[in-house]
Nucleic acid binder design. Structure first.
Lengths: 192, 192
DNA sequence: AAAAAAAGAATGAACGTTCATTTTTATATA
DNA sequence: TATATAAAAATGAACGTTCATTCTTTTTTT
């Protein structure tokens, strides 16, 4: 596959179509022909931009993950206090899951199925380094619990996935009070 | 599909094969022919027990969910204190995710993709009524926070999914200390 | 010997991917 | 600036394969 100068538009349309169709029907019901049609492109054109279906999905995943991370750390600054930094990042993540729910739903699906290959999965994790650094600092300053990063992640960040998923499937509507309560629960579970 | 008197064994083998293959490769890479072969059965035989592939997956989901719920509430008794009841249920769920990790992984995949149809999903949720009842009681007795059940679930039960998923993919090995820390974080996040 | 259960082979549809061709764009020449 | 030409980008149709499902026959059970 050669470098293409033109039509980043088409590539974007393909990524967008992939997210949309995988969200609606799942990987197994998102055929290349349908992805092409949704992106207003010939099936053959997909192969000018991606090696094959697996490659398309991998690259979509990595790209969405990058958008997610950028969004999450947008308002964060390394000089902030640990508590303030955590609050900002947490609330940005919540924001992302509400406002960019298509992207968030796609990530949730990728993170819970064998649909993405291991190298791409590893690539996607890298972006969270800033959060790990923050926790490291928090542990040093004895502000957050001296426990594994997995536990910290599980109890402070991951519940958001479930919360937002529920929002999409049920009548439960999230409002500012819910968000504040959820943030409080998150902080409570990791602070010393 | 008629009622079959015989060979519950074959049905079980099919359910087991479905779980195994979906776990390894995902729904999209678990063809009926492969499921049949894994279960040591002819492809045609599947259709004596299930209407079609969707039906097979739906019923597998409902069955695994039932096993999960039975396991979770095995040691629970309605006359226990709210705190003790919660601890028992929580630890049984953790136990299930460690000891029956195949079942747990399958459920995680089903709960995060459009692979299961909505009626079956609804069916699967019903089983958690006992937990909702416990929380109801906890709120009345002013022992746990007066917040939405979704939030309670997200912060106390759901993080376990992530934790166990990590265990399967990384070097991170769960031990009793982790479990105790995690339980404490769970209880901290919901108790008043 | 009849009925139920299971099997393997067969079927049409749908899939990912490639091929042969056309359309568009960029470059060179006058 | 206008025209010719080469390269790049994009296409629709076609390919071989694999899929879910069904059909016909065989085996097992009653």
């Amino acid at each position: 596959m050669a470098k293409l100068q033109k039509s980043i538009d088409k590539r974007n349309a393909l990524i967008k179509a992939t997210i949309e169709l995988v969200n609606n029907d799942g990987f197994h019901a998102a055929p290349m022909s349908k992805i092409a049609k949704t992106a207003n492109v010939s099936p053959a054109t997909i192969y000018l931009y991606f090696d094959n279906k697996q490659d398309l999905v991998n690259k979509t995943y990595i790209e969405v993950k990058a958008v997610y991370t950028k969004y999450a750390f947008e308002t964060y600054d390394k000089n902030m206090s640990v508590e303030k930094g955590f609050e900002l990042i947490w609330k940005r993540i919540a924001d992302f899951k509400i406002k960019e729910s298509d992207n968030a739903m796609f990530l949730a699906q990728c993170d819970n199925t064998p649909m993405i290959d291991e190298p791409s999965r590893k690539e996607g994790i890298k972006h969270l380094q800033s959060l790990l650094d923050l926790w490291e600092r928090g542990k040093k300053e004895q502000i957050i619990k001296p426990i594994s990063d997995y536990l910290l992640y599980a109890y402070s960040i991951n519940p958001l996935s479930f919360l937002m998923m529920v929002q999409n499937r049920d009548a439960f509507q999230l409002n500012d009070t819910h968000i504040q309560e959820a943030y409080q629960a998150a902080w409570d579970s990791i602070k010393l």
